[in-house]
Amino acid sequence: MFDGLKKTLQGVKEKFNSEIIDNEESDKLENILTREEPVENHGFVEKVKVFITDREFIISSEALNEPLSELEFALLESDVALSVTEEISGHIKKDLTGKRRKIGEPVDKIIEESLRSALLQVLGEGINFPEFIRSKKKPVKMLFTGVNGTGKTTTIAKVGNYLKKNGFSVVIGAGDTYRAGAIDQIDIHAERLGIKVIEHQEGADPSAVLFDTVQYAESHGIDVVLADTAGRFHNKVNLMNQLSKMKRVMKPDMVIYVDEAVAGNDAVTRSDEFQRSIGIDAIILTKADMDSRGGAAISIAHTLGKPLIFLGSGQGYDDLMPFIPEKIVNDLLGESPNA
């Protein structure tokens, strides 16, 4: 994941570089030509003054237009949603335009810092998941939700495995009572991992299942409750109401929104809808191994402003990577010289 984005970003960085250097050279030339007759144009005089006195150079917004549109193109091709792309490029433009640059300071450093701060701002802060669980009263309740087919059930099995390895006891509530085979699926996963599942029949009220799961956890001193739910589309009012009911009954400490790394622009629309109708505390992105681009991570993190906890990256139970924004950004742009 992110390899594609990394490659395109490198290309864009070079482009920024050459555009700005070109601009600088023409500035020097003009400066020599006009030294004897000062020009009325204030902007230009200002530039010349800066050049002579401070030996600095101002980056003009025109010089940025082309590399910026190239950046936008690269982000779009990496599945970053249009609205988010525009915000990132706006951020960089604002950051760079009018910036004074000392001669001798490498251009790519300025650009890299600007890109870095834009991406870090979008990806937000990560979260220490085990730390979060320890900080809450037992049992810590997690409600998993998302649209159909993003991999909620598989993710719950992976998270259960992760928590067990970190020394927590876990119980799973089989709240997907709708999809044929869903209870079976979670049963088999849980059996392999040695995790208890609380379940009712197919078609039962999921809120009741989750209520029982919490009861079980309380009476048995279990650390964490993982609640599976049926996939649902955010535009189906009844299903969203059902989800709100689950939330009321279960009172989760964390609502985890599961989406897939391969999703395109709809990632923004649907995560936003889930956020508005039940509220999201954290995000897990699945199928990261399928996607070399990783744009959905940027889109969703930006839309929700909530931390991404994990990336699901394969079919095995251990294929779950904690998400650390600085690491991702460093991976994309190389280590920060200031860090």
């Binding site: 044929a180 085979g181 079976d184 699926q185 088999i188």
Partner: peptide, 10 residues
Amino acid sequence: RPGAYTQIST
């Protein structure tokens, strides 16, 4: 995938 057969057969 666990449960795949149950799903389709149901």
